[in-house]
Write a protein that binds this DNA or RNA. Structure first.
Lengths: 276, 276
DNA sequence: AATCGAGTTCCAAATAACGGAACTCTGAAT
DNA sequence: ATTCAGAGTTCCGTTATTTGGAACTCGATT
């Protein structure tokens, strides 16, 4: 005789949903991995002991397991770095990602037509994760940002994606950001951010007016839907010294067309059956 | 007086020495993740149940934990794909990798001088993992292989790295490969493979004469050392229809110089102190 | 309505993780 | 050379998590 145990009881969950998914041992191991991955310098055992609230013996075993599994490598000087297995796992995940595959020709075309750097981003919680990128010609840095995450509130694709959400969700997320005023023009309060939403919603286009990095501008469009479970965005990015705001605006229809084209491919290929 | 607890009886141990690092819960979770990452099509719950020897309830919880941690995502149709968190972790691991950073300018120069695709690979067990790549100009596929793994025996960098090992280690690995004859010219036995080693050792250069993929040729040099704990390699790859074997050979000194230059940077920057 | 298949939940028993303390190693100070 | 301090590692009884079988729910099919 089973009753409704009701996993998500209304009152309990109001507080804070951060960092309490109760994933047991796995969660603890990943906390360690996260700390190692996020460290600027490869941490040594004692560094980790200070950063993670675990007894010596326990932490040591956790790290040992991570090392044994190849998720973490240990240098000669006993400092720890993320392991190659992560790269391997991520590479498979990336190259097999059907959404990315589907979007690739479209962003390639957008790149050909604009000649500037093009990004494909995916919404993930309060961040945008860059799934793909095509660099402008001779830029030195390569494939740098694939897999990188940025906050939603200060990026072109991020704002475009926010605007796709129902207003209540949008406002809820706006309230959750840890706003950092990266530049003069950063929208650093929920009010400023929400103030742009109406315009983005009606035009389908959002701009990053050097809001995240000085000298970097971008035009973006959101795509996807809640039903499909995919909220994404495409953008064209360029240096402010070469691309004026007006030139950005001129790409509006190209960017919108690209977003619409990806969406129609999504319907065609992901809709009927979730075939790869 | 270690007691053999239960499942792994003595006779089983003889079978296969692979996959027995005893990493407890973490290992089991990663086995699931591996299966999901390696699947061609996103598996559904029942598929996984067939592929992994675990009872329903257990497997379900393991997957739930992976999902809760963001290592796995679940599609609308209950099929599972690797999660975005993997990309994020790997991106940090990649961009923070000090060896890659150090090698980057050198392979960039090699690319400029040859005009062809250049790879940086790292030895990992019986495989080479590509740490970085600079594509030839207008190639369509981008950052495709970073993080990808290939067998040592049929790639240019792989053979070059093998040749750096002491002969006994080299022979030991040669005996362990699961040889697949990818093309006509694949070295598909330990004897064929070891037969090339002397030449590679003396010249410092190895060739992939369409041994992995038809129509793809490459010249490579190994670098690093056992003491440093890094065994790596650089290569220039090109299509056979455009690049003759002689043209490849002409790059010999460029490739060697690049390898030596990276090595001297390693000594300078990784040697004194493992500073990032 | 009944059946089947797929996915999900539950709980006592089994097992793996915990954590304090003891041990070893390394390099610096005496 | 000896001592010492700090870092890293191992051990083992206790504790908490994982396990795995079975029961349950939901949807599609007959």
């Amino acid at each position: 005789m089973k009753r409704n145990t009701s996993h998500a009881s209304a009152s309990d969950e109001l507080r804070i949903s951060r960092r309490k998914p109760k994933t047991g041992t796995l969660g603890k191991a990943l906390e360690v991995l996260d700390v190692i991955a996020l460290s600027e310098k490869p941490p040594r055992f004692t560094d980790l002991l200070g950063l993670i609230d675990q007894p010596r013996g326990t932490l040591h075993r956790q790290i040992s397991n991570l090392v044994a599994e190849g998720l973490v490598s240990v240098n000669a000087d006993h400092s720890y770095v993320p392991g190659l297995r992560l790269l391997k796992l991520a590479a498979r995940s990336w190259s097999g990602n059907s959404f990315r595959q589907l979007a690739e020709p479209h962003i390639a075309r957008l790149h050909d037509e604009t000649g500037e750097t093009v990004h494909l981003g995916l919404m993930n919680g309060l961040e945008v994760i860059y799934l793909d990128k095509i660099e402008s010609k001779q830029t030195v840095r390569m494939h740098s940002q694939v897999g990188n995450a940025s906050p939603l509130y200060c990026t072109g694709v991020g704002k475009a994606m926010l605007a796709l959400l129902p207003e209540e969700d949008c406002a809820a997320r706006a309230a959750e950001f840890d706003y950092v005023r990266h530049t003069e023009t950063t929208l650093y309060t929920p009010e400023l951010l929400l103030g742009e939403m109406a315009e983005i919603r009606s035009s389908g286009i959002s701009y990053d007016r050097e809001e995240h990095e000085p000298g970097i501008r971008c035009i973006a469009a959101g795509l996807g839907s809640l039903e499909s479970g995919i909220i994404a965005g495409v953008s064209v990015t360029g240096p402010a010294f070469r691309i004026s705001q007006d030139e950005m605006t001129a790409w509006k229809s190209l960017v919108l067309e690209t977003a619409r084209a990806i969406e129609s491919d999504m319907e065609a290929r992901l809709g009927p059956r979730s075939q790869e």
